[in-house]
Design a protein around this nucleic acid. Sequence first.
DNA 1: AAGGCATAAGTTACCCGTAACGTAAAATGG
DNA 2: CCATTTTACGTTACGGGTAACTTATGCCTT
Lengths: 320, 320
Amino acid sequence: MTASRVLRGEGGYSEETRVKVMEQVDILGYLPNRLATVFAGDQSSTFIGVSIPDLGNEVFAQVLEGIDRKLGTFGYQSVLGLTQHTQKEEENWIRTVLSWQPAGLILTGRYHSPRATEMLRNAGIPVVEIWDLNAAPLDMSVGINHFDSGFDMGRYLTSLGYKNLGYVGTSHDTANAATERLNGFCKAVEGAGGAVVKQLCLHDTATYYPGFYGTEQLLGSARDIECIFFQNDAMAFGGLQYCAGKGLSVPQDIGIAGWGDLPIASVMTQRLTSCHVSHLKLGQKAAEMMMGRLTDEPVPTCTDIGFRLIPGSTVRNAKA
Amino acid sequence: MTASRVLRGEGGYSEETRVKVMEQVDILGYLPNRLATVFAGDQSSTFIGVSIPDLGNEVFAQVLEGIDRKLGTFGYQSVLGLTQHTQKEEENWIRTVLSWQPAGLILTGRYHSPRATEMLRNAGIPVVEIWDLNAAPLDMSVGINHFDSGFDMGRYLTSLGYKNLGYVGTSHDTANAATERLNGFCKAVEGAGGAVVKQLCLHDTATYYPGFYGTEQLLGSARDIECIFFQNDAMAFGGLQYCAGKGLSVPQDIGIAGWGDLPIASVMTQRLTSCHVSHLKLGQKAAEMMMGRLTDEPVPTCTDIGFRLIPGSTVRNAKA
DNA sequence: AAGGCATAAGTTACCCGTAACGTAAAATGG
DNA sequence: CCATTTTACGTTACGGGTAACTTATGCCTT
């Protein structure tokens, strides 16, 4: 008991005793068992469960980095869960991670299985849903309005005179954010009298290759496409490479727009038209909201991190 | 106690009792507290601490993905630690994560602080050191020989006739792998009668921007450089963009070589000269070795995952 | 019907750190 | 110098799950 007091610096011991305890700590290489503390219910753990669809997507890697760095400054740890974009994986992971008594959970996306939702409610711990902005979150939410970002891109591209637009993306069970962007995009384009031809590479991950082959397929079936909006920048790069390989000049022969504004996009000589989202900041904000809740500070239930359209030079000039 | 038996399917209960227990589990939304099990020492946890320098580097994100996916198939979870390439951060993280009684640890790099090493030895749990191949690991190791990969690149580039070579990289306390590649590179180049001019962007992360500006600085101070070897592909892309912006043709005016073979490198029209390492496989192998040790299977202490030089088209042709 | 033996279910103790409470000695006060 | 307070340290109990052990019940055997 006295040793416990010394180790927690709680006071109520003499300097002489403190030294003796610390000596033994050194000799024994003693490390406290935090499991016992949490188990006894004296305090909550410093685990935060963090579910991320996949890390192959640079964007999510950055979100995770933002989360873990910020949590780290508070002495908290991320327990990772890669859900592969499926609710079933997410549900299983939630069940497992909850049995470890985490202090809170940060989940990507707003759609969860009914059982998952029930477990989350029963757990009685803070939950932050990130990525999709969610006006009615389980607990807290931080993200952007994907529909709006797709809409803005559609409005921008049609304002440049494009009428025949293409979309290249993948489709997962819960890739709802991308689907919402597509919906917003279509609404804007159709509202401006244009049309969108969609090319979905199902069961693929949203990276370079599907961008490359998706573009090939799209242009093979619809030759009059003037400009393509991709699910994300990685796919857009794949599309750019396809065009370069086929001798198609961008933006003279075809326009290319991505989404997410990867770091590499800003260093390329030809600036990729995209939509910037501060992924690192999103992650940090999620961690901050979590920590705010855990320290009983007032926390907004819903935070819009915002986005910014990047005109770039891979679509035709506004004056054209 | 009977409930415990039912939940573990241990046997020694009647069907009637089983049904009654499961009913109550449903009604109460009961989730077992795994903390208690581990705490009691009846079994070890299913946590594996995983330390990664940073996730901004796509390469490490892939390693982590490989680790977590594989661990997931065994019902284990990753507890993440981003060490920012510093031993001090790693040491602090190790101390914290050990207090949570993990089943094992996977650490990036072979150099740890003395205290960290001591804690790792005392912990008595499996440890896999990844990234650098380590013939004398604390416990187990999986990675590649970075010196050799740098050496091979140096030999390849000099075999093409390059004499005046440049290197652009960053330098962190523990970016030892990159330093070893550089050492191997220099040895090969100097052995072939060439010379290497180094440009280190200290205190920067090894991404596009430093690659861009590092190239600018290097070429500003040493105009006769024929070919530049970069710390990694991301920096090489930055260098490529610098060259494109300055009207320097690659490989006619200058050669560019990266390291790591990012996915995007293989879809570019101009194939980046690089060195391929299967990062996902590295992560999976690390997780497999960990699981093998935890299930008392015989596990090799040291696994070389290998690398493959990618000639690419950003350096002059062998016939030139 | 008594003895032997599965099977089902209950009881006790333990894991480790700490809250709550107890106690002895030293310090303080009038 | 005795009463009161403070300081330093000790004791007990608890948390949830489970190993090890005990008890109760029903079944079969001879």
